[in-house]
Write a protein that binds this DNA or RNA. Sequence first.
DNA 1: CTCGTATACTGCCCTCTGCAGTATCAGCAC
DNA 2: GTGCTGATACTGCAGAGGGCAGTATACGAG
Lengths: 214, 214
Amino acid sequence: MTELTTTSYAILGLLALRDHTTYELAKQMRRTVGYIWPRAERKLYDEPKRLVAAGYARSVRDMVGRRRRTTYSITPAGREALTRWLGTEPAPPALEFEGMLRVLFADQGGIDQLRRSLQAIAAQAAARRAHFADMAAGILATGGEYPHRAHVNALGMPFMTAYFDQMAAWADWALKEIEGWEDTTSPARTWAARADDVFADAARPHDTPPPRRS
Amino acid sequence: MTELTTTSYAILGLLALRDHTTYELAKQMRRTVGYIWPRAERKLYDEPKRLVAAGYARSVRDMVGRRRRTTYSITPAGREALTRWLGTEPAPPALEFEGMLRVLFADQGGIDQLRRSLQAIAAQAAARRAHFADMAAGILATGGEYPHRAHVNALGMPFMTAYFDQMAAWADWALKEIEGWEDTTSPARTWAARADDVFADAARPHDTPPPRRS
DNA sequence: CTCGTATACTGCCCTCTGCAGTATCAGCAC
DNA sequence: GTGCTGATACTGCAGAGGGCAGTATACGAG
């Protein structure tokens, strides 16, 4: 076994909160951690085994009827490893944004294709934004699953909402801008002045308003 | 050969602009496309070969001194494939944000570790933001490498700047919020009221201001 | 009693990353 | 000219990761 990856620590972090079955790990990935560190469900069946091999977790198999189930728990060594990891330099964020790729190459296709790509981006961002709105509402209503961790969850929340709000706002802006476009190539001339405005704006760094605090 | 991946189309999109050597493809990935579709340089030596095998690109080998060099160009079939792809549904964006993972699990470590993670995030976002400011300034100064594509580049630019501005603003906000924290666990009580404010704010969807147009 | 949905895994093939290894070329300092 | 340095140009390989098919059982609704 080589050394642990970020994925290992993501799972170790979940195990630090409480014991998890593999299925519960998968659910947490779908609901929360996966928005920050997306990994295929398949991986969540391999990775905890590595943690066990490294001495950072223990596994217990029990039976639900005649179906087996594995529950993982963190060891003291696992907690130490997690704390050590928290002190190392984080890798820069990486964004995979297929929709933007289509915008960048839009001049190779039709104006309707560009419009539909932007609409898809707006819809995807709105759906994800709604997920976090629901999550926040749920925490407010019930106190959340881990009240003693509300503060760290609250610290991250404004990033996620602003991230998806910004993505949706950008897609709406772009849809508006291309309203007058007749095709995907001629705006190089007809829209040139606005393009220059955009570049001028981008060239001059400025603050966005901080996450809104009411 | 199975079918093409998004990575294939990312490269095909670059070849649609002009012929590229592998090294030039790598440079474009570092400078532009990689911020949207990050791939290791290693892949850029394999992927164009698949495009050639699929009939979507052609390769020409020439010599610079005694060192060989491969230049790829797109075929008519490649242009058609790219245009077809532009009409398919884009995959939702995926964000890998190791720094946020450390914020989420911050209660497993010390307050200094949390502070340093947030500082690293702020620095990473600022550096990437500066890259796009430089790029925009360069386009303004020189007209850009592809003036006939200025409009699609301009369409994407506000997303990138707002994305990194927002990330930096969030990190600054979080650093400010944790200024009064003595450790990473007790704020669950001492900071609870503010946490509730944050969740209430997140639960209520609202617009962010659109990309700034001067 | 059946159907739908949730739970619980494994195998397999492919993509992708990261790193080591192996070169040559071009410009500049000295 | 010689020796740096940084850019250019690739390949092999091991391990991480994704996606999908396959194979089950549990359990509640109707």
